[in-house]
Amino acid sequence: MRLPSWITQHLAALRAVLVLTVLLGILYPLAVTGIVQLPGLRDNANGSLVKTGETTVGSSIVGQAFTDADGNPLKQYFQSRPSAAGAGYDMDSTSASNLGPESIEDTLGDPALDPNSADGDGSSQALLSQVCSRSKAVGELEGVDGSRPYCTADGLGAVLRVFYSDGLSGTVTRAVSVNQRCPATPFIGTYEGVTVECAKFGEDYSGGVLVPVRGDAPADPAVPADAVTASGSGLDPNISVAYADLQVNRIAQARGITTDQVRALVAKNTTGRALGFMGEPAVNVLELNLDLDSTYPFHG
């Protein structure tokens, strides 16, 4: 008995679904899983986990913070670069800040709200102020000049809203340091003969022209770029050799060893350029800190 064509078509489709399910849903995943467990591939496939004894302390391909319960850097450890993934190095929220070079004006929070509450006070920092505040903090931690171009001495973006008599031109009638909330003292006293004001919550400064002010910071800051900017994924496990070198003196002092001893471990945990020419040398922070603990234990 010949089956109707619509039934044979459905049976053919069902057979195709079953075959493809077995091939692509069962056999292929099993084959890939088996292949990646071969020596040389196994560690990466399993997350490149790093263990101390029987305890898993992290992954060599995922960064982590080395801070105390209050978020303060632990002085005996090398510090990772900043992270925009969640609250920092959150693998469930891997991301960048998505802020670009034009992000220079902060959003001031409502002083009537608690900035530490669950909802916050509505404030947010522009990328420029994030970079400035991080550079200031790293400079203080490492005992170097943390100043950068276009940053105020208090670690904010040095940005004015300048109002002109004819809109976008003419004489300056008003200048506001938009990232410095009152009663802060503006980073410069006057701009083209007009006294610079601090910023007040609720005032509309959109009619002014945004003017970043370079200041007198050195063109080549002491604090490297990767110490003040997050990676695209927010999970970068490495820092630059320059940032590692900046931290050597603090580590040596905290652990009571010489800077040469610390630099030797930095060199040991530094990887070169891929294929000899791609990228830059990098230092794996977790592996370096574990090497420090095993070689020169910290006794507090």
Rank of each mutant, 00 (worst) to 15 (best):
Q180N: 02
A118Q: 13
C182I: 04
A158P: 00
C182H: 11
K136D: 01
N116C: 02
Q180T: 01
L99Q: 15
D154R: 14
Q180G: 00
T107M: 03
T185F: 01
D121R: 05
V138A: 06
S177E: 15
V138G: 08
R181G: 01
S165M: 05
G157T: 13
D121N: 13
G143L: 04
R148S: 04
C151M: 09
D114N: 14
A137P: 04
C182P: 01
D114C: 12
A137D: 11
S169C: 00
G170N: 08
G139S: 08
G157N: 12
S129H: 05
G170Y: 02
L141A: 14
L99S: 11
K136H: 08
S169K: 01
D166I: 00
C182F: 10
Q180P: 00
G100C: 02
L141E: 13
C151R: 12
R181D: 02
R181V: 10
S129V: 04
G146H: 09
L168A: 10
A118N: 03
T171R: 01
G157I: 09
S123F: 06
R134V: 01
V178Y: 08
L113C: 09
D145I: 14
Y150R: 15
A126D: 11
G143N: 05
R134S: 11
N179Q: 06
G167A: 09
D110Q: 13
T152M: 03
G139Q: 12
A112L: 10
L156I: 08
V162W: 02
P186T: 12
Q180I: 03
T185H: 03
Y150I: 06
D121Y: 03
S117G: 07
A184C: 11
L99Y: 07
D154N: 15
L168H: 06
R134Y: 03
S135W: 05
P183D: 11
V178H: 05
E142Q: 15
P111M: 07
N179D: 00
A184G: 09
R134T: 05
Q125A: 11
Q180K: 07
Q125P: 00
L160T: 08
L160R: 07
D114I: 13
G146K: 11
D106I: 03
P115R: 15
C151W: 05
S123Q: 10
S103M: 02
D121A: 03
S135F: 06
G143D: 00
L127W: 03
E105G: 09
Q125E: 14
V159S: 04
L108R: 11
T171D: 14
R181S: 12
S117N: 01
G100N: 12
A137H: 04
D166C: 00
R174E: 10
L160Y: 02
R174D: 12
S129N: 06
E102T: 08
L99W: 04
T173E: 15
K136V: 05
T152R: 09
S169Y: 03
S124K: 12
G139R: 05
D166M: 03
E102G: 13
G109W: 01
S165V: 05
V178Q: 02
T185I: 08
Q125K: 15
V159H: 02
S103H: 08
G155F: 08
D145W: 12
S133F: 05
V176D: 01
L141H: 12
C132Y: 00
V131S: 07
G100E: 07
N179F: 00
Q130K: 14
G170L: 07
C132G: 04
E140D: 13
A184Y: 01
L113N: 12
G139H: 10
T185K: 07
D106S: 09
S135H: 13
R181I: 07
G155V: 13
L141W: 10
Y164G: 09
A126P: 03
